[in-house]
Design a protein around this nucleic acid. Structure first.
Length: 680
DNA sequence: GTAGGGTTAG
């Protein structure tokens, strides 16, 4: 009797404390001898918790009268054991047996099981049952079905359930906010957050994390500052690694690399995620060098890079044209046996393509085990920047034979590949197919490529009509494309029209002024040439500092214009002048119209051209390598027209293959010619 | 309900 009393009092905690199935059995036996029979559900839960699901099931099966608690205990057990399908089956079994009514936890757990399986059909069915049984407004059931819809990407359904919930707690609000962010609707996420505040609820850490992601994707500096301020004011886990990492990511994606680095430096503890967040942020926002330094530093602190940090590093290699390090990253992946998933594979393929190793890119592409849209797009774009339109088309044709759906990026890459290879008919054909067969509304970038391909082919009238028929207001890029075609084909009438539009739209980069000025010079309109210079001066435009990077013997060397600070500047000039004599003998004449300063002396202009960063980088490469070597130089702006001509001659006199990648495309210089047919 | 990753173009 005493045992029975004691058992009843503490049975729950006793059962909870049982670590293994055997000790539960002992208690179970004691319960039977003491005549306790109303704790079946707790026994089932305890057996299940220790992993003895068979015993739990046996017990359940032998129960003469199964109450809701017992059903729930078993359903929970199955859903916890990563056998959610079993949990759903059990739910259905319960529904069909008479005398039991599911309660809030039954529905919550059953719907959760459906969420794990992303089984929208069963989940919706159970949700309907819940509404029928009067649980439609239950906050737990509501949150679980909310989560189901969110995970399955059904935000509109989620929103309607959310609006119907009588009571909302922080979890339901944050599920909604997180869901909107994850499905690419950050502005609506912020709106929901505002509503939450209006209803008198404060966001917690999870909500803040979601808001940081929202700010990261829309570059809302004001919102970003207010989220950060809120975190500080509330003292909201300020030192929490997750929150700090969220802040780093947010600031980095907003281009505030200084703030991001500052927060990173002040962190008391970091993990791989925090390191990777900053590495990716730096790589994406153009500080590739800092990204790579951080990767090295990370390792010196004992953190092994994972696939995310390596993707960031590969992005940095792509930017810099650092093929040696890119290959080393690939080697590291192979050595450490890191799984080559779609994202990592894509980053590697992109790196090989942008570092000039198309065969490596293609070989890796063929060895992938599955191909998603982004992977196809990457390969198409890779051929595109190298002016290999035929191969780009071949890959595209293979793509449309699979279940991959070409998207706007696919066509942007494909059309740009057509324009870089002069495939006019194909460009037109696929532009039309994009609209008609793939139901993709053309965006400005698609128009730019098509105008480019037409104008390059000399069909400037057609290109102009296309611009005038655009559904939206034509931006500067389409006029620039038209103008370059007009310059190439000496179409001065339409060209003048385009040139005026370009000036009207106030270009913000010197290269475009060069184009306009060169066009007017070719048309012998000297007054307009002077006008362009005036406009250019008064615009006070931001001049992006140009630089070129050469990879020589596996190391990177950066050069700016007239790089007097370089330790070997004198030797570089020497070899350059030496080469120039031979180049002139072969017919090279400097195109001084590419000097956009008001300078009279021809000799000074020539000197300025000689000092362009790409030329210094190439001369350095020639100085440091043997004939026959392939040089790779990347430039952050476009290669100037005179350099383009000069490098052709440099490839002859230096007996080297010179590959220059500028912002637009690759130029392969070999034996005095370049892979691209025209400069503009 | 919990932070970081790949493709366009200039």
């Amino acid at each position: 009797m005493l045992v029975q009393k004691w058992l009843l009092k503490d049975l729950k905690s006793l059962l909870l404390n049982c670590r293994n199935s055997a000790s539960i059995s002992k208690l179970h036996a004691l319960m039977i001898t003491s005549g306790i029979s109303n704790k079946g559900a707790q026994l089932i839960a305890s057996y299940a918790r220790t992993g003895d699901i068979d015993m739990a099931y046996k017990l359940f099966d032998n129960m003469p009268k199964k109450g809701i608690d017992s059903w729930n205990a078993l359903i929970i057990a199955y859903s916890r054991r990563e056998t959610p399908a079993e949990a759903i089956n059990l739910y259905r079994k319960m529904k069909n047996s008479a005398g039991v009514n599911p309660d809030s936890s039954t529905f919550t757990v059953a719907i959760k099981a459906c969420t794990t399986l992303l089984d929208l059909k069963s989940g919706g069915e159970i949700w309907r049952d819940a509404v029928e049984c009067g649980y439609g407004g239950d906050v737990f059931v509501g949150s679980s079905v909310l989560n189901l819809f969110v995970r399955c990407g059904r935000m509109d359904e989620a929103m309607s359930v959310f609006d119907g919930m009588r009571r909302k707690d922080v979890v339901s609000w944050s599920t909604m906010i997180t869901g909107l962010v994850k499905s690419g609707r950050p502005r609506e996420a912020v709106d929901v957050y505002r509503r939450m505040r209006e209803e008198g609820l404060e966001g917690d850490g999870v909500v803040m994390l979601a808001l940081m992601q929202a700010c990261a994707s829309v570059e809302d500096a004001k919102m970003a500052a207010s989220v950060h301020g809120f975190i500080i004011r509330r003292g909201l886990k300020v030192n929490d690694v997750m929150v700090q990492t969220g802040l780093i990511d947010m600031y980095a994606k907003n281009g505030k690399l200084g703030t991001a680095s500052c927060i990173f430096r002040r962190m008391r503890s970091r993990n791989v995620v925090s390191w990777s967040a900053l590495i990716s942020g730096l790589a994406r926002n153009g500080d590739a060098g800092a990204a790579l330094e951080l990767l090295v530093e990370m390792q010196s602190w004992g953190f092994e890079p994972d696939s995310v940090s390596l993707v960031g590093a590969l992005l940095a290699c792509s930017h810099l044209g650092f093929s040696r390090l890119g290959r080393e990253v690939h080697g590291f992946i192979v050595r450490t046996g890191l799984e080559l998933d779609q994202v990592l594979g894509t980053a590697l393929i992109d790196m090989y393509a942008k570092c000039g190793s198309l065969p490596c890119a293609r070989a890796l592409f063929e060895r992938m085990s599955s191909w998603d849209e982004i992977l196809w797009n990457t390969m198409i774009a890779g051929y595109g920047i190298h002016g290999r339109g035929e191969e780009a088309l071949e890959v595209f044709h293979r793509m449309i034979q699979t279940d991959a759906r070409p998207d706007h990026v696919t066509f942007a890459s494909l059309l740009s590949a057509m324009s870089h290879s002069g495939l006019v008919e194909e460009g037109k054909q696929w532009f039309n197919a994009m609209i008609k067969d793939y139901k993709i509304q053309p965006m400005e970038k698609h128009y730019v490529s098509l105008v480019d391909v037409l104008a390059r082919g000399g069909r400037v009238e057609e290109a102009r009509s296309l611009i005038l028929d655009m559904g939206c207001e034509p931006g500067i890029a389409v006029w620039v494309a038209l103008l370059s075609g007009c310059l190439n084909h000496s179409k001065f009438l339409i060209g003048e029209f385009a040139a005026k539009k370009v000036i009207e739209l106030k270009p913000d980069c010197p290269g475009i002024y060069t184009l306009v000025s060169n066009f007017f010079a070719a048309a012998r309109k000297w007054e307009e040439v002077a006008m362009v210079r005036r406009v250019m001066r008064s615009a006070g435009m931001k001049k992006v500092p140009g630089y070129s990077v050469a990879e020589v013997s596996g190391r990177l060397h950066a050069f700016v214009v007239e790089d007097k600070g370089h330790p070997e500047y004198e030797q570089i000039l020497e070899i350059m002048e030496e080469m120039e004599l031979k180049m002139r003998a072969l017919g090279y004449r400097p195109k001084t119209e590419f000097v956009l300063h008001d300078i009279e002396e021809e000799e000074v202009k020539v000197k300025m051209l000689r000092n362009h960063s790409e030329r210094l980088a190439i001369a350095f490469g020639i100085l440091k390598t043997r004939p026959g070597t392939r040089l790779l130089v990347t430039k952050n702006l476009r290669v100037c027209g005179d350099c383009h001509e000069a490098i052709k001659f440099m490839s002859i006199v230096s007996e080297r293959e010179i590959v220059v990648r500028d912002v637009k495309r690759f130029h392969h210089f070999k034996n005095g010619s370049c892979s691209c047919s025209d400069y503009w």
